[in-house]
Amino acid sequence: MEKATRSERIILFLILAFIGVFMVFPMIWMFLSSLKTTEEVLGSTMTFLPSDPQWSNFSGALELAPFLRYIWNSFSTATVIVLAQLFLSSLLAYALTQMEFRGRNVLFMIILATYMLPAATTYVPSYIIISRMGLMDSLAGVVVSNIVDVFSLFLLRQGFLKVPGELIEAARADGASEWRILWRIVVPTSKNTLINAALISFIGHFNNYLWPSLITNSEENFLISVGLNRFFNSQGAFGQTFPLIMAATVISILPLIIVYFLLQKYFIGAISSSEGIKG
């Protein structure tokens, strides 16, 4: 658009920086609160910084519930889910972009339609299916029931469409099998799309709450969001343990914040490449 002058840019920066700080304020406030004493938090005067940081709140929270276990559960299930999704989505995306067969477009439309539909519609029957499979209250159940991911399929399809056709034709002419073309040519050329899809999917499954809370019951199988919410409820919604709850929340959010700051440019790239997937 119109180029802003230097002073206009400074004003814009100040406004946007204020908004930006507002956006991360809950995270900052959470972190500061996790270091406060109960008295400080419940006191009537507003204090922003903890007067004497209570690092012991973190060990306290870890004693009350196995947060590291929850994080591990989230991390491991999300990882397996993402790998399985990428594998299956790559196959299907390849078929949808590089192979010809009857009903290809119809198939794509059906898959597109399922993306529009609310997941909740499938919960009851999926619940029954999971229990028939004997996977109720297990991490395997969480993984198996989450393998479908239409969004990553769209991302990959979009990425595979950009692979130059001559590359694939040359490989076919050399006698390479479709399997080989997919894994040796198409996937390596679409590396960024795969990373983007993996990140978006990983975040979603790491943070997943409702469905895992329905199919897991025992503490050792909780994902982080499920465990955190149980902890929150068990501590009483209003209580002396507020700093502990904040400490627990910090623990549960920290892994993603770290991932985010390390891989920020891929997140932003993920958005750019998912553009173009329209209704």
Partner: peptide, 23 residues
């Protein structure tokens, strides 16, 4: 600034809702 503004999206809704309930 984009990084700051996008940060809430990656945080878990459950954890951040707990924080907001206290805010």
């Amino acid at each position: 600034l984009q990084g700051l503004m996008f940060a809430p999206w990656i945080t878990p809704m459950v954890g951040m809702s707990i924080v907001w309930s206290w805010m």
